[in-house]
Design a protein around this nucleic acid. Structure first.
Lengths: 134, 134
DNA sequence: TTGGGTGCAAACTATTTGCATTCGA
DNA sequence: TCGAATGCAAATAGTTTGCACCCAA
């Protein structure tokens, strides 16, 4: 089974119909763990054989996020990043270069975490270390 | 010295010329520790005696942030929150209500933090616990 | 007086939406 | 076939900018 087929399987497993555009976008995202903006993905898709419109890229990324195939990372007020690594980890965000870098989960240890407010449940713990070039 | 005067002092101390609009915005922000969006501040200013334009509110908030009078909190892709509490603390973000709540600094303890990438220095450590109503 | 601050409107960017067309099971 | 997916363009929302006018030092 080649890479393209395994991606189609991955989409099907997540309940996403594997259309041409979605497979194309998934191949870009899952080529390796990375952090891409919608704009970057749009560019990359349109350099490849098949293309996709801006709306389709946004719709697809939103769908992937809802299905848990990618994680949205919100660190920059001007755009959302999509992280193809959905396992637990944290991020450095370099404000000079506007780039994200992973912090492995075992590089941070909490020995105390707060109680959640009454009537709420957790839906994610994020740690962002903002950095700049020195 | 009344409250208004102490705010004028605070602005001067931070190197911000205390104009009518800036003092008005500062009075709203520093009335108590809170998290407000630019839009909310614009509304609140315009309910008061003096008013300010949208551009002035944005410019002023940007200036306050640069001068360290408020902290920008980026958790919602659709807008920036301005936090009038600049001492170290963390946040809950309720995605159902789009509201921020403080987590006191001593409610979280790290016993391990990552090394920074070569050639960078830290400019802030953020912890965001995303929550939803259960 | 005079340079920084303000207001307005227009520009901009990222993202979303409506709707007609097209594609894939 | 036929509903789901796509593409386009227009709409939207938050934020920024250009420029003439005004006010605090």
């Amino acid at each position: 089974m080649d890479n393209r087929d395994s991606i189609i399987d991955k989409l099907k497993t997540s309940g996403v119909t594997p259309t041409t555009q979605r497979v194309e976008i998934a191949q870009i995202l899952f080529a390796r763990p990375q952090h891409l903006s919608a704009e970057q993905i749009l560019e990359m898709v349109n350099e490849s054989s098949s293309t996709a419109s801006k709306a389709t890229v946004y719709n697809t990324l939103g769908l992937f996020a809802k299905k848990g195939l990618v994680k949205e990372v919100i660190v920059d007020p001007t755009k959302v990043f999509y992280d193809s690594n959905v396992s637990k980890h944290f991020h450095f965000f370099n404000t000079d270069t506007s780039t994200l870098t992973d912090i492995p989960v075992d590089a941070i240890n909490f020995d105390k975490l707060p109680e959640l407010p009454e009537g709420t449940e957790s839906s994610g713990l994020e740690v962002i270390v903002r950095i700049k070039n020195s």
